[in-house]
Write a protein that binds this DNA or RNA. Structure first.
Lengths: 206, 206, 206, 206
DNA sequence: GATGAATGAGCCTTCATTCAT
DNA sequence: TATGAATGAAGGCTCATTCAT
């Protein structure tokens, strides 16, 4: 049902099977959802035994938390780097942020899907810290939008909500993107950037 | 975790506990997800016994399918009615469609959330028929967008993808809407309509 | 897996669905065994509702008991009649008893199979009375054998055990008989009679 | 209902509880039948937990298959050995085969009963392979009978069917044998051998 | 680290039976 | 008679987790 290649969000950590386990968990959660995937599934995908999982991870929910944390860290780092490397104006910054976001999705689609769908099953501190990280990511976009509004580049009357909506639309791309789809990665980024700028009511031409 | 009031997507069907069961399932799936909710949960919420559930529904997955089918039917009916009652121009039609969509979310938020998150757990014919229904709903929006492009009201260069993106953004509202939030239902609809028109590159002022 | 035609051990009793239910039970028990068949199965086969079963039969085990009782009664009656109608000598009587037994199997194969396999699930009085009936049937054979030994027609040194063995071999026919098999009903009876006489050490030629 | 001592068909396999589980299953199926016995019953008899059963056996039906396979293997091995060790003539061979069969029943009565009564609940490959093994066992008897007919030692006109009937009668012994019964093991074998030879129409004295 | 065995709770579903109509 | 709804127990099986080795 899911033809995407096995996820490799986590590169070898030098700690035995750890990377394999985290990537296996990502795949398992991506395929069946958090509650639909079992620790046995994860073990099988990771090529190790069920009980050995617990040498690396204390529980299923912490496994989800760890996977989501890494995905979010990676996305956040890419976004920050993209924005830093961009020009000083809001339009450039937004454009680069969108590009980076799309690149992340293309390279780590499963991670993005799991991030979107399974956060709700985190609890307590794990949930809180992930939500905080996400808010930070969202703040980056809100910052860009605020700057654009100040500069007169964006005319949306609802800057913060619009920033969130842009983020939502971007995230949703992970739900339908296919590597062999109609649009190349570049075209996809271009399209999404245009949607974002339009939604923010940046005067044409983009 | 979920402070929303109990869902009442399904009104009394005149067949004993059927409505109670479907609504209970909606709530349960909305709270814990399809795999996270148990038939015992559903039974408890419906105020009946576990085994009696099976006098109304043949399996957990068919229960999900039934719930999703009803939600989709209701949404589709509202959209069709709204578009039919609207003026002849694409902008009016889009506006009314957005308004109807938001109204559905406000009244059946849980149904919308479950619809979005749990379709993936349908299989076989249930999945196929629901996907078909969704495609029909999407076609309504694509039709409006195509009309708008033809009329010169929308200038987006990617009409079909843009229609989908609009739909995505609308659906996402169910993920964060709170009845006691900052915006009234009307304001929310207004805002979303503006996002949609902007994204479709309708010339301002809207 | 089981190509035998639906059993019709019980002819219309003039009491609504009773015959249909008893025959359905026979089929169900024959196909899946007593514990493998459910009252729902029986109801479905009988073309009535589950709960209506209980208007005719007080419980599943009494249903089994009733079915077995009727099967045994029919078999016993046929045997008695056959022996009565036969000549006075043991060989003729045995021959006719075997013929009648085989005829019963051919006409009521499922009943015979169920009789053999499911008696063990009877309990209490039902079990006791069926065992008593069977012992009576067995006594008929033992009587014939005893007579034959007295007459010098049978020379087996273990008359009673031999009678039981003959009965066992006969009953086992129900386990493999197929209407479209190699032997006609008559040939089958002939063969079994010869086995019986040989086993009882009747002097050849038979 | 069943006063026979606990079965010990399977000796310690060196793999934890495996033997205990297989023997427990044999007992459980022997007492209540395949569908009448629950995995919980088996676990209780084996002195382990329900869930731990599944560390040894993948399903209830595979458990039945495994038990039946072992029983059949043991019986087949004994028969082969007995026939090999016997003299060259058909009568000796048959006599030894019967003796070995009876010895198996005496030592593994429950296994024989379960073998006879519960094969029908096997399905697919398990069923097919067991049927094949049984046919092989039957072929041993058919071979002996054919040899006897060729030698003029047996005069039955239906050699193959007679071999099957002999086998049936032997198997049925498991249904009524009691360790404290009238006949010793040796007498039982003697009696059955005489029945078999008589049925095959071997000229007296046996 | 790594394994197989073990545990107790829980899963979805079906059971025989009863009840109200 | 006949039905659909209801019940509580039990069915086979899987779960996340732990333990001994």
């Amino acid at each position: 049902m899911n033809a995407r290649s096995p996820a490799t969000l986590v590169a070898d950590t030098g700690r035995g099977n750890e990377a394999a386990i985290l990537n296996a968990a990502l795949d398992a959660f991506g395929t069946a959802g958090f509650h639909g995937a079992s620790m046995r599934d994860v073990a099988k995908r990771a090529g190790t035994s069920l009980s050995n999982l617990y040498n690396y991870v204390p529980s299923k929910s912490r496994l989800l938390a760890e996977v989501l944390r890494r995905a979010n860290d990676e996305l956040a780092a890419r976004l920050r780097a993209a924005v830093d490397d961009a020009g000083d104006d809001a339009v450039s910054r937004l454009r680069e942020a969108v590009r980076a976001y799309i690149r992340f999705i293309v390279e780590h689609q499963v991670a993005m899907v799991v991030s979107t769908n399974e956060v709700r099953y985190l609890t307590g501190a794990d949930r809180a810290s992930l939500v905080a990280e996400r808010d930070a990511t969202q703040a980056v976009f809100e910052g860009i939008v605020a700057q654009g509004v100040a500069e007169g580049a964006f005319r949306t009357p609802y800057p913060d909500d619009a920033a969130r909506t842009v983020l939502t639309a971007l995230g949703a791309v992970a739900g339908w993107y296919r590597p062999d789809g109609r649009l190349s990665r570049g075209q996809l980024a271009e399209q999404q950037a245009r949607y974002a700028l339009a939604l923010l009511e940046a005067p044409l031409p983009h």
